[in-house]
C-alpha cells in the first residue's frame, strides 16, 4: 500500500488527514515538524507528502527544499495552508510542492488529489 507522510504541527489536523486517508487504506505516518519529517523520509522515502506551511523548527518550505535536495526518489508533495493568496502558492511550488490545497481540505478533495498524484484510478 502507498505510504503517505503527514507533516503538521497541529495534532488535530494530522488526525483529520490521517482518518481521511486511512479510510481508504493508505498507510499513514506523521511528523510534527520539518526536521522530524526529513528524518523519516531519509529512512524510507514516502510515496506522497502532505506538508503544512507554518511549523516550528523547520517549516514546510524548508522541509520541501531540503527534501528535494536529497538523493532519494522524489515523490509528489501537497502543501496545505490556510492562506489562499497566490504568492503563498507560488512560494510552495518554488520550494518543491506539486500541489497546493487550502485548509480545511474537504475529504473528497484530499482523496481526489492524493489519488491522482499517486497515479491511481478511482477505486
Amino acid at each position: 500500500m502507498k505510504r503517505i507522510l503527514i507533516i503538521d504541527d497541529a495534532a488535530t489536523v494530522r488526525m483529520y488527514h490521517r482518518n481521511i486517508l486511512e479510510s481508504i487504506g493508505y498507510t499513514v505516518e506523521e511528523a510534527m515538524n520539518g526536521i522530524e519529517a526529513l528524518e523519516k523520509a531519509l529512512q524510507e522515502p514516502f510515496d506522497l507528502y502532505i506538508v503544512d506551511v507554518n511549523m516550528p523548527k523547520l517549516d514546510g518550505y524548508g522541509f520541501l527544499s531540503q527534501l528535494r535536495s536529497e538523493e532519494i526518489p522524489q515523490n509528489p508533495a501537497i502543501m496545505v495552508s490556510t492562506e489562499a493568496a497566490i504568492h503563498d502558492q507560488t512560494a510552495a511550488f518554488r520550494a518543491g510542492a506539486n500541489c497546493y490545497l487550502v485548509k480545511p481540505v474537504r475529504p473528497v478533495q484530499l482523496l481526489t488529489h492524493v489519488r491522482l498524484l499517486l497515479g491511481e484510478e478511482s477505486k
Binding site: S69, R94, G119, E121
Partner: peptide, 23 residues
C-alpha cells in the same frame, strides 16, 4: 529560478506527470 534543489523539484514533477499518464 535555479535553486540548489532544482533537480529534485524536476524529478518530483516528472513523478507527478508519470502518475497522470497512468491515470
Amino acid at each position: 529560478d535555479k535553486p540548489s534543489w532544482l533537480l529534485g523539484r524536476l524529478k518530483a514533477v516528472a513523478a507527478v506527470l508519470i502518475n497522470y499518464c497512468k491515470v
